[in-house]
Amino acid sequence: MNEINFLPLSGIAVIVLGFAMRFNPLLVVTAAGLVTGFAVGIDFIALIATFGEKFMNSRQLASFLLILPVIAILERYGLQQRAKTWVASIKGATTSRILSIYFVVRECAAALGLINLAGQAQTVRPLLAPMAVGAAANQYGDLPQAVKDMIGAHAAACDNIAVFFGEDIFIAFGAVLLMDAFLKENGIAGIEPLHIGLWAIPTAIAALVVHLFRLARFEAKIRTEIARCQQQTKQASATDDSTTMFKEGSL
């Protein structure tokens, strides 16, 4: 076995450290490029020109900018408010049903490029989480805080998972364009962003199936969690009672 040359890997160390230390990602990535270039002995001018060449050659990544005016004008005339009205109108007696419907629609919307239609701040916090908690409260009465938290966390997770696994189907999303640019830069021709988007569909469907399955079982989990909390409070109040009795006795 011949010696491994570790110098070209120095940029990766810069990336890992830089991201971990929360420096601005653009700065980290540029620094990683500079360090890699210096480590393998590319001269400065040639390195800057390489930066320029590669940046120029990946301009297709900015084509998502073309979509923003459309989204912007629709938002100006109430697109997000319309989405909110829709979320608020989800009918369904149970928590898991509300979350499931939201999940399906959110993933489909993301696949069509409507990634910012909803979100943690826009819809989960003001609408989805309260609705999901409300449905459970309707069914089981007053909920312990731990159960409310658990339902809230599930609402947030629904939004994340649905968007993540829907968005890569949309051909003008950054990830798809990045993959496309990477393949072209490495001399692999004949792949269109559309192909990459199509191959995102199987995992997107798997995400849908897996998460809906978990949500279907979530209702039972809420019941056991409520029971567990009630038991705990009972035990706690029982010990409270005994200590107060003990105190009274000692008085």
């Binding site: 930066f51 990830a175 990477f182």
Partner: peptide
Amino acid sequence: LPQMLAMLGGVF
């Protein structure tokens, strides 16, 4: 960021 990362990929 995506474009910067593509550029870094090129430098790699």
